[in-house]
Write a protein that binds this DNA or RNA. Structure first.
Lengths: 233, 233
DNA sequence: AAAGGATAGTGTCGGACAAACACTTAGGCA
DNA sequence: TGCCTAAGTGTTTGTCCGACACTATCCTTT
């Protein structure tokens, strides 16, 4: 409840920001998109893209706007993660931050778009630079959330090219979940979900037998989900 | 990232509040604790307990403080739920609210404590009065989260007396998950988790065969969880 | 004291799904 | 032509989940 009495007082208000943990998948590494700060505090240090919430935009809008402004990234899977409200997160003043995580297809042109705007760069999740504020905590929380989500919802496709081989998908799962998976069981499981289109196309420019390509069929997925189907592992 | 440049500008800031969805379990109903507003907007209407975040307290602290001030409820299971940032949530001004959900043991004296402070009352989840702001949305989100959480973490005990019968626990699961469960399978499953102490005590004042009482053993639970044990259903 | 009512408490079987496991095929490259 | 690398493919075994019905205990009523 927002109490009208206390509304009358002009209490000091925490500032409200959004921060985005942008995940990308690069062959066999999970990466995070960071930007380099040019001003104190943490000048020269790396931080998550983000910024203050404007008075006339929703939180989701703020997250997408900042993401676009600071990294050029656009039209991605985006979901609210957690709100970080530690009193001393920011040394200047009280800032509460609503954290989001995003999944992008590194294969698209987005890498280029990302790297020209400001000083943005992809870092391997297991080899991050020192981070500003509590952004290391936020990334850790995002990683755990991604692991949990991936186990029971097929969002892995958001990190792959539109057309992909099953082995790519498996590598993605192995990297994110940090555990090896059995090839035959994995294929059996994924194909049995019946949400992939088998294409009449195979990989190009590989130095070995080319793998068949598949495409995620979002329509079928939605229908199956509505019908109560599960998508574990 | 909190951008220092924009810090210089005195942008209009959204106000920041917390709201709490407090769940209680009453024999065979899931209930929510609401308070009655005495001032506009929505004067006389019902709303979630909550209020503005102070400049020197964390979000968790704010949630616990408001909960205590407005309902007398104290020392409960509390977890952040989601942050609601719709632009027109509050007709007076822009207010972003970090929602929490809490689980309380109705059996404790907390009911009494809750009902004396202000006009607080328990409502059955499936028979709520008209609610202020977007609080109906928040409660719905909290309910779904509770369902999801209960499926794979043993938090049901937070809603029951310290000593309880297995049938009570089962009814709780049935009510929250909105599906009937098989008695024998349920007992088998719960007991196999090995996180309950079987007490040398039975129910009193029941008009039929008295059931054996159990107690949740949090130490054992933590140890088992650390060892990687699952707690599904 | 007996009968009835209500809930407690208990075990088995069958089917489905998950986990373990190895060889053959295809294509590029030396 | 041979080799290297990854693709692709089934079966078996065990475990866990779900379905299912009767007896025991205690209190209440007559």
């Amino acid at each position: 409840m927002q109490d009208t009495k206390r509304h009358a007082y002009a209490h000091a208000r925490p500032a409200l920001a959004v921060d985005c943990v942008v995940f990308g998948f690069d062959e066999d590494q999970l990466r995070v998109l960071l930007i380099q700060r040019d001003l104190p505090p943490f000048a020269g240090g790396w931080a998550l893209p983000g910024g203050f919430v404007r008075i006339d935009e929703t939180l989701d809008e703020a997250a997408r706007r900042e993401l676009h402004e600071e990294t050029g990234v656009d039209r991605v899977y985006l979901e609210q993660l957690y709100t970080f409200g530690g009193v001393d997160r920011d040394p200047r003043e009280r800032v509460v931050s609503v954290a989001y995580y995003a999944l992008v297809k590194l294969s698209s042109h987005q890498v280029a778009a990302a790297t020209d705007a400001r000083d943005a760069a992809w870092f391997a999740l297991d080899d991050l630079p020192p981070l500003a504020f509590d952004h290391a905590d936020i990334i850790e929380t995002a990683h755990r959330r991604l692991q949990g989500k991936l186990r029971y919802e097929p969002i892995g496709f958001e990190l792959l090219p539109r057309k992909f081989a099953l082995s790519q998908l498996q590598r993605l799962y192995e990297v994110v979940l940090e555990q090896p998976l059995d090839k035959r069981n994995f294929r059996k499981k994924v194909l049995s979900m019946d949400i992939l289109d088998e294409l009449d196309e195979v990989q190009k420019d590989v130095a070995h037998r080319a793998a068949r390509l598949y495409r995620f069929d979002e329509r079928r997925y939605r229908r199956a989900k509505k019908a109560g189907q599960e998508f574990q592992l």
